[in-house]
Design a protein around this nucleic acid. Sequence first.
DNA 1: ACAAAAGTGTTCAATTTACACCCATGG
DNA 2: CCATGGGTGTAAATTGAACACTTTTGT
Lengths: 231, 231
Amino acid sequence: MIDRGHLQLRLTVDLAILTVRDSRLHILVIERANQPYRGQDALPGGFLRPGEGLRDAAERELAEETSLDGKVLHLEQLATYGAPDRDPRGRVVSVAYLAIAPDLPVPAAGSDARSARWAPADDIRGALAFDHSQILDDAVERARASLELTTLATAFCGHEFTIGDLRHVYEVVWSVPLDPRNFSRKVANTEGFVQPTGTKRLPETGRPAALYRRGPAHTLNPPLLRNATAS
Amino acid sequence: MIDRGHLQLRLTVDLAILTVRDSRLHILVIERANQPYRGQDALPGGFLRPGEGLRDAAERELAEETSLDGKVLHLEQLATYGAPDRDPRGRVVSVAYLAIAPDLPVPAAGSDARSARWAPADDIRGALAFDHSQILDDAVERARASLELTTLATAFCGHEFTIGDLRHVYEVVWSVPLDPRNFSRKVANTEGFVQPTGTKRLPETGRPAALYRRGPAHTLNPPLLRNATAS
DNA sequence: ACAAAAGTGTTCAATTTACACCCATGG
DNA sequence: CCATGGGTGTAAATTGAACACTTTTGT
């Protein structure tokens, strides 16, 4: 029963790891060390192993190919890509995961990683190996949409952040300016979005801002909608 | 390079086909003719073939296992399920697709289909083979969420439908009553949601309702939100 | 005339937006 | 005391919810 001649294939798990750096949305890319697409940038990823679940594989790649396993605050399945000719090595289907990391003081070139680096998402669009540019586009769109309906934005911040930090994430990912005053209130009035820590952070200049942690809520009720006049 | 000993596996494409019948959300299930889970209900699906894309496979299954290939008005990838032990026959990863069909006058037991039938989603929850109950839950939640943000609801209606038909889809999928008068206006004021055909349909009793076709828009702007008091 | 479903107008409340204004800190 | 970012108050505009009422058909 097990070998009825159906198509056997290999499966990779690829990671679209997003962060906000220098007021731009960045994605983690690695330079490919082997053929195909040698020397070109690609998303980190690797083959699924026996006995391993999909999410397990994503977490393993996060640890192996980047040094981000402890830092990533969000990991969700994005989509699966299976065009017959997407990989010149043969039939390879890829399950892509979307990961969100806070802005890291040190670029993420990690232990094992050949040469991991953060690339601005806008700059690298269309320049990735395989169909990874498509995955990047889908990841960015998913992140944009999720900011409206979920507390995903907190994953872009560290464990502690100010309302200004959180607003900055929205502004960068959506590429729109937001009113700081109205944004504060909206966040504060959304049950479970953030929790005050009681501490404050001093900016280089200006009044200290209260620090918050992510709250227990996952979905935003009411949602925080992008300006409807666009689109 | 092609046989470096990575895990080889088989991939199925499974379909969660939803429709609204008798004021309840239904899903198409088939009774399994073979082991494992012989005699139990499962989602239609099958193995990916060489040279075939994922969506191609979904469309093929739609034609082979159901007789719905021309009737389904929406098909999108849902998620991928790959727990190591999800299929007793060996390592099988499943890419699930969500399909939406209008209410069909004839139950969809089709040509090839062993015994396809519509089952109320609520009744069949938890009773499906493999991890298909999980897929069903995810499909229903995706459909519910998509009604808010996209024109998905039109796919539940035929090519021509009344505003009342459309409202009925929302009411059944969300399990909430909606005000017919406010709903009409909201739909009419949402650019590209529906287009009037100029014709009318006579109900058994009452004033004839104008017929509409789905409009060009895919995303709803502004969104049509479920009552926020729930959740 | 009546029942039933479609659709319009109107009112009141809730939310969003814009922006004046005050607060707390470093230089 | 000034610059800078954090945060509150408030009035106007917009949107949403509720519902009285009119329209159009079959019986």
